[in-house]
Every structure is written in C-alpha cells, then in structure tokens.
Amino acid sequence: MNIKKYLRPLNIDEAYGLLQSKNAVIIGGGAFLNLGNREVETAIDLSKLNLNFIEEKNGEFLIGAMTTLRKLETSSFAKENFDGVITKTLSCIMGVQLRNTATIGGSVYGRYGFSDIITTFLALDAEVELCNGGKMSLEKFLEEKIDRDILLKISIKKDNRKAAYINMRNSSADFSLINVAVAMKDNRFRICVGARPKRAKVAYEAMSFINSSEVNEETALRAGEIASTTLQFGGDIRASAEYRKELCKALVKRAIMEVIQ
C-alpha cells in the first residue's frame, strides 16, 4: 500500500470530513487493505476516537469498531453469551496474529462475502451504527449501497438467544466455502448463510418453514433444502455453486439441531 498522508483525527466529524476527500480510506487493522497495491491519498486512522470497547448498556451489547477480533473473541462477553457463538466464530479465522490485527469495524464494513463473523452477527440480529447513516440493522447495511461512511459500533440485543455457527473449509486456515449461523429465541429461528460465496443472507423461507413445524432432524433438513433452493449460490476457486447448495442443506440442518440441543 502506498499512502501519501496518514492522519489520526481527534473527533468523528473530522474523520468523516476527511473521508469525503479523494482517495481517502479508513484504516481499521489494515490487514485486508494491505493485500492490495493501493494508492491512498489520505489514510484515516480511527485509533484516537475511543472506538475500542466492548460494553453493555440498556440491554444491548456494544462493540466498538476498533475492537480487534482477538479482543472480542477472548472477552467474557463473547464467551458467556449466545452459547459462545461469537468466540467460536472468530476462532475459526486464521491465526492469533491476524485476529490481533483485524478489527470488527474493518470486518463488518468490508462486507466480505467469505466473512465468518458477519454471518453470526446477522443471526444475532446485530445493528450497525454509522457516522452518517446512523443506526440500521446489519441486514439492511449488507444490502444498501453505502459509501464513504464510518462504522462506529455494532450493537446486539441481550436477548439470550441460543445460537450455533458451522462452517466448511477446505483446510482449517482457509476461507469458508460456506458458513451458517442459526439463532433461536422464543422458539423462533433465524437462519443465515454466508460465503455463498457472496455476502451472507437471511434465509426467510427456510425460517418460516421451520418456525411453523415441529423441529426434528427431518424438518431441519427440509429447512436446509429450502434455504439451498431459495438463496443464490455461486462458484469460485474454492467450490462450485452446486456443492455449496449441498452443503447448505447439511449445515443448516446441523446448526438447527445444535441450537435446540
């Protein structure tokens, strides 16, 4: 990466202002940005904006954008809530070195198709708070065309939902071929499928089926089949669309069964 100017704004408005200039980018952990040979005019470092936090407020968990993956993974919040699904999800990603570097902000704002954590956050019905765009559901954020904004924090309701996360990889340190997160609250399921290989989606048809059925292996598999036919899948160098569809069935089934255990 070639950077001309590197700035550490002291307040959010200043950061937002800088971001509107030509070839300006926010630097989170910088791990993903570093992969490309980018020419950056203004690099905006958010480290002076107090965005490195994990806290509980008014029945919500708040995760600051500059929190590293590793900090979140090892936090008591992640370990003790939602069946530890956040810790479990994050520990699948590469090694501790990367997780000490990459931030939650970069991971969510990057909206990577292969993302593990986005799928899990989506199942937990997380919300994002943007500097300009304000607060919106993660689901909406993934669909909107949002440009040149700053992700400030993620919030997740403390609603004690149960959750499970399952992924499939060609090898343990590779990207997911597909990943599935399922959460359940008051016997209602939320099923999300990521790395299709496109961005994670909520499998509504599968949800409405399982929410109106008695849950057992058979119906769970049926939900998986519905998800695999109603969501779109593609092929890339890791797997074909066809295989992803097959995996979707099995993994959705397994995640549902894990959640009701």
Binding site: L35, G95, N170, S171, S172, A173, D174, F175, I237
Partner: peptide, 16 residues
C-alpha cells in the same frame, strides 16, 4: 495461476 499466494494456496496448518 490463481493460487499464487498463501491465502489461496493452503499448505497444511497444525490444525489440519
């Protein structure tokens, strides 16, 4: 060659 770095070409890690 698409598998031209350690992100795309995965040698076994100790977890494998």
């Amino acid at each position: 060659l698409l598998t031209n770095n350690f992100l795309q070409y995965r040698i076994p890690s100790r977890k494998d």
